[in-house]
């Protein structure tokens, strides 16, 4: 139990969980079949980046407020990207009646 007590004070734990989220998100982006599945994976990936920035800023940076502001910007960019992606997904579904990436091949050479 004593080892567990030091867990929240260890930078490595945060880095490993951030990279794990990034890796799982990358896997999902490569192998999901639908646009919504890809969006969900992309959100996971952005969360991994956010934890990484926040952990490094808190543990190693002299000014922890700068890390918080950068993570806030990341949250904003993530929200904007999700809104745009959903708009595109709805438009694609309306035009092609599908959001499966295997069937959206009109631009394929």
């Amino acid at each position: 139990m004593d080892y567990l007590h030091t867990l929240p004070n260890n930078l490595i734990v945060y880095i490993i969980i951030a990279h794990l989220l990034f890796g799982i998100g990358l896997y999902g982006m490569m192998f999901r079949r639908t646009l919504i599945g890809i969006l969900i994976s992309l959100e996971l990936l952005i969360q991994g980046v956010g934890i990484n920035v926040m952990a490094f800023g808190t543990f190693l940076h002299v000014d922890p407020l700068a890390a918080r502001i950068m993570t806030l910007f990341l949250l904003g960019i993530g929200a904007a990207e999700a809104a745009l992606f959903l708009g595109i997904a709805v438009a694609v579904f309306r035009n092609y009646k599908t959001i499966s990436i295997n069937k959206l091949t009109r631009l394929k050479g």
Partner: peptide, 12 residues
């Protein structure tokens, strides 16, 4: 919530 709406609008 936005993703849930997108999910229900594009379900197939």
């Amino acid at each position: 919530v936005a993703i849930a709406f997108g999910l229900s609008l594009t379900r197939k």
